[in-house]
Amino acid sequence: MKTQNIYFNPFLMLLWKEIRRYCKVLVQTVVTPGINSSLYLIIFGVSLGGSIDVGLEVPYLAFLISGLIMMSCLNNSFANTSSSIISGKFSGDLEDLKVVPLSKQQIIWAMCLGGITRGLVVASVALTVGQIFYYSQYGEFMEIKSPFSLAFFLLGGALAYAKLGMFVAFLAKTFDQMSAVSAFVLQPLAFLGGVFFSLNNLSPFWQKISLFNPVFYLINGVRHSILGVSDVPPLSAAVVTVLSLVIFHVLVLVTLSRSEFKRW
């Protein structure tokens, strides 16, 4: 006897599909980001790291690992929702979402949860790779000061970026627009968001600029959870996280109501 539940099952299936989608190309979605993190760790953490002092009384390697974890988490949450929508626009199966009994909120949450899982998987890969490097340098594993706060910042950041990914992808009219947003907005924000350096390494002018970069707060939230030290207080990081969640949710909801599910 088959049961049909048109209120909740469609949501479950979309979430499952989002997860299956990146599992189909695991090399591209999980292995590659893992290798990227390793390269950063080798170049900056191990080889250059000895000569860098971030002024926070932690080894540069630990500083870098905490930043890389968040950066890969954000990037992959964003990449998952945005590429799912963009490829759906391209192949036409995004239309399907409009034709089946899924509400806008369900579409948003299912896709975002899918994005979060990928963000968290890749963050765990980065953490694992980081721990291996840390162990090889210091003979012990890096301690995580506050796991609950780490979970909050990782989940919050991943969700915010998953929503941002949906927002940008729904707005984008071409592949070019999509990659322009990545190259001109997101990458700079991430690289200038304090993954590789602390405020202490910057001139006063750039310190002020950095404080306007939301990614800076997201990354420092994670850093504080892991190391117990960071450039900005964890409370302001938490406020920025919650604010981005609310803002991005509204943005997605609005674009979803207005924009086209039709293929390019």
Binding site: K2, T3, Q4, N5, I6, Y7, F8, N9, P10, L12, M13, L14, W16, K17, D96, L97, V100, P101, L102
Partner: peptide, 10 residues
């Protein structure tokens, strides 16, 4: 997937 989208998981 399509069955699931219409609420039928099995």
């Amino acid at each position: 997937f399509y069955s699931g989208f219409f609420g039928i998981l099995r």
